[in-house]
Every structure is written in C-alpha cells, then in structure tokens.
C-alpha cells in the first residue's frame, strides 16, 4: 500500500510536469520560473485550506464551511483594519487564526457533542457563516483604500525571490508535516479515521480528535481569510464562493481517502497544484472557464475511481495467503487463521 501511495504521488508529479510541458508547447513562457512561481503563489491559499480539509477528511469527516469561514473572518479582519488602522498586523493575523478556530470549534462541537453528521453540520454552518459575514458588513464592501498599506502589502513582500504568501504556504506545509507525522495528534487523526473502534479501544478519543481537526481546519481558513482579502485587496460577502469544493477536490485528487485514515501531505499539496496548474493554464491557451470546471470535475471522478480501485485491493487475499502458506508450510496455520 505505501508503495502504491508513493507511486500515486509520483504519478501526480508526472502528470503535473506533463501538463506544464504541454501548456508550455502551446504558450511559450508558461514553464518559465517566474510563471511557475506565480502559479505556486496563486495556489498557496488552496494548499493551506486543503491541508486543513485533509485533517478533517482523515477522520472520516468533511468541512464544507471553510470558504464561508474564510469570507467571514476576512470581512471581520478587514473591518477591524479599516476601523482601527493602528492595530499591528501581527495581532490581526492572530485574530484571524482565532476567529477561524472558533468557527471551526463550533463545527467540531456539533459533530462531537451533538453527534450530527459532519456534512450536515458544515452545510448548515456554511450558510450561517456567510450570513454572519453579511450581517457584520451590512452587505457593504471594504475597499483597498480603507485598508492600511501594511495589511495589503505583507503577503506580496518578496523574500528570497518568492512572495511572503508563498512562504506562508510553505511554512504551513512544514508545520503540517510535523504535526501529521510526528505528533500524537497526527497519529490520532489517522487512527480514528482508519478504524474508529480500534482507536477507541487503544485509548484514543475519536470525538476529541475530530473536534481538533475541525478547529485546525477553521484556524487555517481564518488565516486564509486574511490572505485572500489582502491579496485581492477587497472584502465582500461573496468572496471564495464554492471554494470549499476546490479544497475537497484537491484532497481527493491527492489520494486522501474520503473513507478516512489514508492520505499524505504530499498528496494534498500535489492535488492542489494540479488544480492550480489547470486553472492558470486554461485561460493562457484560450479555453473558457466553463471548460475548466468540467475538466476539474472529470479529474475528480478519475481520481475517485482510482481511489476506489485502491480500496478494493484490500480484500481478504485468501488466494495470496493460501499461496504463501503453500510456499512456506510452517506458516500454514497462520495463513488459515483469517
């Protein structure tokens, strides 16, 4: 399995490289370093959100409220910035993380304590959080000229050739790799999605793990609220509408199993990059955005089929076990003990 997963990530890399090469053939300059850096920068927000989504999906849940969370938090931060320009940016970013985490915690509590299916909870909070953004702003926009220069420029600040936005995504990826593979929480994510009962018996609190997955997803959505508003230099109620589906798509394309317990950070990042490349390339070669949606959809279906075939491999393997025990008679007893 792990070899197959690695294989899958290599496959994604190959597909992305092939896509870039094909687009570069039609539109020279597409594969230039500046263009690629630009694509990465453009995909940064998706990568961050997809990693939050991945934490949730690993626990057999889904968070459909990330884009609404982003919209509300982005609006709140932009309004604070407009009203109190003297508040330093660091505090605003901390506030964005905090507000996002709070909205995520609401999802998490409803799933954990009230026992409502995640898809229903987040479908509900999706509309509620957007509605809150509308109530908060009264439907008005926060424009570029109301925001402080610091607030607007920070993500664009170039550091070692890349804008700070890209570095933020890279930092989030590194932190998530450590969190997912090197901490008890990360292990609990995989265990509680892989086999909730076994996890429970091993002393892992599945409900609490899920709750914190939602908090994490919410916090990252909050951070992206600031990044989005700052990058596009405007805050209004309808920013990032439908973007939650892109985050789910990135996870699915990257091989995060919707049944929980399976998936790697590399997969989620590559899934996001794949969508990023397509989104940036199609306009370059003059294909309408509607085709872009259809192509994304097609890729998701192919990816899900691929995942399903992978799942199916996990049968009882009676024949293989039998062959093994024939090969090594001493193990006959074990082979039969299925």
């Amino acid at each position: 399995m792990s070899r197959l997963l690695k294989h899958r990530e290599l496959l994604l890399v190959a597909i992305i490289v092939a896509l870039v090469a094909a687009f570069a053939y039609r539109a020279p300059g597409f594969a230039s370093p500046e263009s690629l850096a630009n694509i990465f920068n453009d995909t940064s927000i998706l990568i961050i959100l997809a990693l939050g989504q991945m934490a949730v999906v690993l626990t057999r849940s889904i968070d459909l409220s990330v884009a609404a969370n982003l919209s509300f938090t982005g609006m709140a931060i932009a309004m604070i910035n407009a009203a109190f320009p003297e508040i330093p940016l660091a505090i605003l970013i901390a506030a964005a993380l905090g507000i996002g985490a709070m909205l995520g915690a609401i999802n998490g509590l409803l799933v954990w304590k009230v026992n409502i299916p995640p898809i229903v909870v987040t479908l509900g909070t999706l509309t509620i959080y957007r509605g809150m953004a509308f109530v908060l702003s009264g439907g008005t926009w926060v424009n570029q000229n109301q925001m402080t220069p610091d607030f607007l420029n920070a993500p664009r600040l170039p550091v070692l050739g890349l804008p700070l936005l890209s570095w933020t995504a890279i930092l989030v990826v590194v932190v998530m790799v450590v969190l997912f593979t090197r901490t008890v929480f990360g292990r609990a994510l995989y265990a509680s999605g892989g086999n909730p009962t076994a996890a429970l018996y091993a002393g892992i609190d599945v409900g609490r793990t899920r709750f914190f997955a939602f908090v994490l997803s919410g916090a990252l959505a909050g951070l992206c609220g600031y990044l989005w508003v700052s990058r596009y230099a405007v805050a209004y109620v309808d920013i990032a509408v439908g973007f939650e589906l892109d985050t789910v798509a990135a996870c699915v394309i990257g091989g995060i199993s919707t049944l929980g317990g399976i998936g790697t950070i590399a997969g989620a990042v590559l899934g996001s990059l794949f969508l990023g490349v397509i989104k940036n390339a199609l306009p370059v070669i003059d294909i309408s955005p509607f085709w872009q949606m259809a192509i994304s959809g097609l890729v998701i279906i192919i990816a899900v089929t691929f995942n399903a075939r992978q799942e199916r491999r996990k049968g009882r393997m009676i024949l293989r076990d039998a062959a093994k025990s024939r090969a090594r008679p001493s193990e006959l007893a074990e082979g039969a003990a299925a």
């Binding site: 008890v184 292990r187 995989y190 265990a191 892989g194 076994a198 018996y201 317990g261």
Partner: peptide, 20 residues
C-alpha cells in the same frame, strides 16, 4: 478485524498505539 487493528497503518504504529 473490526475492533483490533487499523489495517491501513504500519505494524509499528499499530503496536505503539495504546502505548504512545
């Protein structure tokens, strides 16, 4: 099968799970 092991996880992670 249902309650015991997390099948997708490697052996060492299953063994250490209750002793983390």
């Amino acid at each position: 099968g249902r309650h015991g092991a997390v099948l997708q996880m490697p052996i060492f992670q299953n063994i250490s799970m209750p002793s983390l």
